[in-house]
Nucleic acid binder design. Sequence first.
DNA 1: TTGAAAGCGGTACCAT
DNA 2: ATGGTACCGCTTTCAA
Lengths: 328, 328
Amino acid sequence: MNIYDIAEKSGVSIATVSRVLNDSPNVRAATRERVLEVIRAEGYTPNAFARGLGLGSMRMVGILCTSVRDPFYAQAVGHVEEHFRRNGLNAILRCTGPTTEEKKQALEYMTQKNVDAIVLIGSIFCEDEDNSHIAAAAQQVPIIIINGHIDLPGVYCVTSDERKAVCDLVEALFRRHKKRILFLHDIMTYSCQQKIAGYRDGCALFDEPVDDALIVPVERNLDAVNDCIKRLLVQGVSFDAVVGAEDILALGAQKSLHRIGLNMPIIGFNNSTLARCATPELTSIDNGLEQMCTIALGVLDTLLEKKEASRHTVVPAKLVERDSFRAN
Amino acid sequence: MNIYDIAEKSGVSIATVSRVLNDSPNVRAATRERVLEVIRAEGYTPNAFARGLGLGSMRMVGILCTSVRDPFYAQAVGHVEEHFRRNGLNAILRCTGPTTEEKKQALEYMTQKNVDAIVLIGSIFCEDEDNSHIAAAAQQVPIIIINGHIDLPGVYCVTSDERKAVCDLVEALFRRHKKRILFLHDIMTYSCQQKIAGYRDGCALFDEPVDDALIVPVERNLDAVNDCIKRLLVQGVSFDAVVGAEDILALGAQKSLHRIGLNMPIIGFNNSTLARCATPELTSIDNGLEQMCTIALGVLDTLLEKKEASRHTVVPAKLVERDSFRAN
DNA sequence: TTGAAAGCGGTACCAT
DNA sequence: ATGGTACCGCTTTCAA
């Protein structure tokens, strides 16, 4: 069943059928009805590939993330997919893992598939040495980065003001006389750098020197965090509060410290389900993910209309207070 | 840049270029090299839509789930995407929400996009009244259901033996003289029905009557579970163990009971991150998700080779014991 | 308002 | 081993 069949059965040319299909105004109402009737009766739907060939688009966006199995990215993918779908854009999902090589391949794959845009989820896509693969892809198709920033033509970024949020948090902790704040993080992404910058900003507000021994990298899983905390204590590194660059890190620290019998404010990041599932519930910084996704969609809409869009938008991040903060 | 340009620059016909592109053996090595050289030099990549038009496939599978934002589904989506990608199949993701209407639309969307297969994640796609939309889609393209079962031609199912796993669990609890086991569940899917059947099987083993007041539906969030537990206690419904049809339900019960000061074995389902994040760590039934995904890929591979595949495969589910079980 | 026909960029069959 | 060419199914321009 193709457009020729429909044309024949309706007694019109394929051009007319095509016009009906594409809501062209240049079709007499009666003709349109007749064609639509045949289309309905035959249950016809146009071939997406042929349409893509003619139009150069299948109204698809590529979504890249390092792993949907990570709840934070899953959350983001969900939001992006939903926002886009509501605007008639569907998603090709591709997980890349952390290596630059795979990210590059994924980017090439998406451009070859003629997607209308590529959404990069997380600043982990921003390499600090070489982003030429992103630059190359951006020449073919708009690239949108959620919570990451690269200053490149064709690359549109939406970030969260995590720097300020951490700064405010540090300030609040200092006011409670918590001056040795342990900051746990995993991969040193753009986002992570912002958080650390915020940490330093906060210390600077109080003219307090930053003890680099308190900024500690650790793998993103409970066991690694537990080992890390124990090691720090054995090494005699003292601290009276913990901030995790991800909820899971904060949660790991919480469990570890609880086991040891230590009690102090613990704050996570992303305000994920984990935060509420922790005991006691974790205070967490919400980076405004959904708002970032809404803006991303707006940017893309603007671009698809061939208008210019802002290359960098920043949304606020805010602290969501829960037990792990109040109690201590 | 298209195949004609490459043909011209290499001094061959487009047919030859196409052969080179598709690794046809009928090309002289020297010719192949010359063409490849031009392709490399020009950075040419074939147009996916045109190729799709000719081949009738873009090597894409549709993945449907009610919500990737749910960690369990995210986990599944991640596994499916990964397995398929490694076999050169990419994923179009579409979340549907719980309504049949949206699921139907998603199914239609996928068939219209000429995907090579559709993967349905979770038995929530199996309606118990009317699955005609799935039957219809299955006539166009193979449908694979992960952890759900519908007996329909063209629909291939991989399920987990959750029934047996719950039965074994109930047996183990009975042996510890826990005979009033509260079973919390949310939507009554095929999977949920299996779990309840397992619950009854277990009781039957001990000739113990099932108290239907202990099989309680509740919304899938912490607050709802908390309210539910409190209500049950007020109503005088007594129980000495809790099994949740999802980890989040078990976790909610754990928090609620802990707050009240009650202590009893609590077991979740899916062995998600949540299980390890709970305090104390939750015992959980692992339904063998990854194995299901591996099998799903195998089935699809078989089908794409136009061979017959088994319409229903069952993988074992097993209990992963942690603190919430041992301690009590 | 409608139709004819030329693309879009490939694949694959049939010759040679 | 290679080339010519007829599709694949739709969009769009140009005429009428």
